[in-house]
Amino acid sequence: MTTLLSRPAPVAVAKPDPAPPKRRSRRWIGTLATPVVVFVFSSLLTFGLGALSPSNPAAAVLGETATPADIARMNHEFGLDRPLPVQYVDWLFSALRGDLGRSYFTTIPVADSIFAALPVDLALAGLAILLAVLIGGAAGIGAALRQGGRLDRTVTAVASALGTLPPFVLGIGLIIIFSVLLKALPAGGYVPLENGLGQWLRFAILPALALSLDIAASIARQLRTSLVGQLGENYVTGAVVRGLGTRRVLFGHALRNAIGPALTVLGIGVPMILGGAVVTEKIFNLPGLAQLALQASGQHDVPLIQGTLLVTVTVVLICNTLVNIAVLRLTPQGKR
């Protein structure tokens, strides 16, 4: 750390120029407007996948003995005999009010089924994101401060290896190590957070680790590269010359300018975490949204499929928007 932050050179502090007001306004408008556009497009695509499916929901519900009259009557009850634009608008506005329809097979409201499974995914994704930030952040900062040293080479090698392994491979490896060999953690199952933080963590830590390690590796690589560049800038040298403490220079100046790429990686990693949950939930036997979607796909339960897709897209958009806002607030180009 001393080799990177103590080069004595009488250089004035030169921080990045603030972005012009018009450019800042366009960034904020784009950050807030893009999720709305993506949501509308995603809802249209989600509805179209269900509406244009070759399978007939009414025939699937009634079975092979259904007559054409029975199928026509059921299609009318489902509202499938209306024009597609009318169906889409009605479905979208109902979804915005929290009404995602009812399952064709169980008649249970789709929203009830989704929000019974969603806490599992939110808790797991939240823990995975926290682990990715802590592990990746610590590794990236440590590697940058020991540039060219043993720690730097180790972090680079481990991050490169983890980046090639999908979550289900990591999950199986973690089960073998911590459940089979060490017998320290359960290999599957889930305990709600209401039953106690410690008990919940015992069941959630392995799947969360499996989902987080790939993202943590990407964060470590990006943060290490960006931070090394910032530590070599004149404003860091000037801050050291002025007598600012190492911790203040690192966290108050260099890290603020270097954190943008790592936050972008985190934003990209949210869909990867939710996508990897499909296989991870199966490996660890978790009753989450991914398993609900797989069950609905097997039954051709169109409302349930559409509802899970729409809720997943919404969660991803909210997380990405929060990350983009954090980038604008933390980096000088967006904050000023």
Score class of each variant (00 low, 15 high):
T3P: 00
L4Y: 05
P8W: 13
P10L: 13
V13Q: 06
P16N: 07
A19R: 13
P20F: 10
K22W: 14
R23G: 01
S25W: 14
S25P: 00
W28G: 01
L32D: 03
P35Y: 10
S43A: 15
S43G: 12
L49E: 01
L52F: 15
S53N: 15
S55N: 13
N56H: 08
N56M: 07
P57D: 00
A58Y: 05
V61N: 00
E64F: 14
T67R: 09
A69Q: 15
H76T: 14
R82K: 15
L84E: 09
S94F: 03
S103R: 08
S103M: 06
T106V: 07
I108V: 15
P109L: 05
P109S: 06
V110A: 09
D112N: 11
D112A: 12
S113V: 04
S113T: 11
A116D: 14
L127F: 04
A138P: 00
Q147L: 06
R153Q: 13
A159W: 05
P166Q: 06
L170S: 03
I172Q: 11
I175P: 04
I177C: 04
V180W: 10
V180C: 02
L182R: 09
L182A: 14
A187L: 08
G189E: 07
L193A: 11
E194Y: 11
G196W: 12
Q199G: 02
L209M: 14
A210R: 04
I215D: 00
I215F: 03
A220C: 06
L231K: 04
V236F: 06
G238N: 11
V240Y: 12
G243L: 05
G243Q: 05
L244K: 08
R247F: 12
H253V: 02
A254Y: 09
N257H: 14
I259N: 00
G260V: 11
L263H: 07
T264H: 05
T264D: 01
T264F: 08
I268D: 09
V270S: 00
V279N: 10
E281A: 07
K282Q: 13
G288E: 02
Q299H: 07
P303S: 07
P303N: 04
T308R: 02
L309V: 13
N320D: 00
L330S: 02
P332E: 04
P332N: 09
K335C: 05
K335M: 08
